[in-house]
Design a protein around this nucleic acid. Sequence first.
DNA 1: CTCACATATGCTCTAAACGAGTATATTATG
DNA 2: CATAATATACTCGTTTAGAGCATATGTGAG
Lengths: 354, 354
Amino acid sequence: MMTMNMELSGRGKPSAEKAQRALARANMDHAGVEIGLNAAIVAVKDNEPVVLVVKSDPDSVGSTDGLPFGPFSPRDHRTLEGGLRSWVRDQTGLELGYAEQLYTFGDRGRHVETGDLAPHIVSIGYLALSQASDQRGVSGGTWRSWYHFFPWEDWRRGRPEIIANEIEPRLKAWAERPAPATPHQRSIARADRARMCFGLDGAAWDEEKVLDRFELLYEAGLAGEAHRDGRSAAQVWDDRPRLGASMHYDHRRILATAIGRTRSKIKYRPVIFELMPDDFTLYELQKTVEAILGPHLHKQNFRRLVEGAGLVETTGEMKTRTGGRPAKLFRFRREVLLERPAPGVRVSAPPSRN
Amino acid sequence: MMTMNMELSGRGKPSAEKAQRALARANMDHAGVEIGLNAAIVAVKDNEPVVLVVKSDPDSVGSTDGLPFGPFSPRDHRTLEGGLRSWVRDQTGLELGYAEQLYTFGDRGRHVETGDLAPHIVSIGYLALSQASDQRGVSGGTWRSWYHFFPWEDWRRGRPEIIANEIEPRLKAWAERPAPATPHQRSIARADRARMCFGLDGAAWDEEKVLDRFELLYEAGLAGEAHRDGRSAAQVWDDRPRLGASMHYDHRRILATAIGRTRSKIKYRPVIFELMPDDFTLYELQKTVEAILGPHLHKQNFRRLVEGAGLVETTGEMKTRTGGRPAKLFRFRREVLLERPAPGVRVSAPPSRN
DNA sequence: CTCACATATGCTCTAAACGAGTATATTATG
DNA sequence: CATAATATACTCGTTTAGAGCATATGTGAG
């Protein structure tokens, strides 16, 4: 899939250039780098946060999911984000709304699947937020719950069992094993990292540490990707099944970054409304926030929070058939952008729920 | 300077490769992208936040400052950050401590200085924090206050005069001018953007919006870079001097990102201690925080804040000759990392100081 | 039709956090 | 030894966040 996209946009190269160009060509020898853009396109469907994934190879049996991917060609696009929007439109038919850059991943090893001598690809991850209603007729991809890839992140029904049943014992076993010597760097002990990341032994759960948790599991050999990446020699100490569904390349890392960013961003920017229909009830808004963050506030306080912050205004309409008293419909109140420097759903850290 | 650096690290290319390599070479046509790494290396010297800058061309008269820059060569370095550390060491003799990736800048136009047909360079910006004491014998660069480039960001002596004297009137004049039509995008009016960014007309000043402010000034043609970048045709409506010292390429944008990130990060991660000597008084700590953020808390509350958060512990030593009663010396208390999910100097937004 | 049920919404109470002020301690200096 | 300057402890009132109680208003079972 990836290489196919790359071939598509081959172009002729413009005419002559000057001295700088020659210099650049000399540097090309050691550069030889391609830029890939990865998009974590997120929506909330039926109170489930979903991400658009594509199959690596629809024919093969063991095909894994991946994020939509496209090359960046500076000849065709003036900006990185412009390039992203363009191939997302071509590949999926989706017109992106909100998009932000996440992180640039350039580690060698991320493409071991294709051999270590493969061209080096630096990939720039993007987060895009999209309304569920915009997603009619999306082609070339399927929506999947992001908790399919990160089951330990789903706290909506309390602490996920996978933490007590799998993660805690296996990480503790890993922490017992000798850690490789780290050259003069004060590193935190494995057991402490596990405790802080996963809220073990009474430590608080921080819903934003999605990437830290994934990287810890990867390092401990509990993520499928770690084995594929040739860490297997050192890491075959635990042959139980890997945790969460894998993705190819380092796409799960990018998705982890996307989830963490989404979780932190809705607290100080009104991006939650990128995921909502135009009109909604406060309960629907709360459910959407909780789909992303986990349960936080009780209903009354959530209402006070969003109304008090001036984030929403009533439309005057009501929504009946909610299963109880009809609810007022609200919409995003854009003026809040002109009133507050950092408007968002400022839910604070929940009390430790272990 | 930049091109010089590039030449320095030219390397021979390793031996033969296979099919993938050929494919990559074919793609090179439309890719033709090089990866540059830019470092905003920050320290605090004598209560002044400084950044390491290099001269573009020491001989020429109108030479401007820039951030240290180096190419990323995937053959030599396994990770982006590894590559960064390596050439920073070579160029400046500095061994980086804390470093984090900021943002990847890839807009065409960032290299107009060298002609639009020059090879496209995508540059990945990094923030590095360094202790002032580590900076003996730094070669190939000079330290400059970051407020030299962003005078409007320095609120330590109250609201900087440049805002009322220059920025406010000139932005208001700009807001009066017709804005170019934006294709079906709800954009905020120029006047409102100016108000929110710079805290005009009673709006709050948000010290983290460093990049937004710079980009607004750029768009309004009040930054030197905008003219150099060929926006001059459209933007010669105000021929008074440009605001703040320019940098070449988009380095000032990267520095703005670095300042914003530093300001936000010290609030939830203990990175302020990367800028402090091992032992310090609470007043010194406060002055360092204020150098970065602007004045926030009065002394007594600052003490309560950092001690209450468990960020510091006394060393038992005292510092005399402080000009008054001797002060206890403190050090960073590393255990806080194991106790709190997001430890930092949690100073909240200051009351509007207009 | 009526009543149980479910959800919506308004209000209160309490504790913690925060901003600001007062008071006292301990040094250097003239 | 008085004074200036900084360090540090304590207090007070306001704001905010978490939690619970009470009431409103629909749907649907009987």
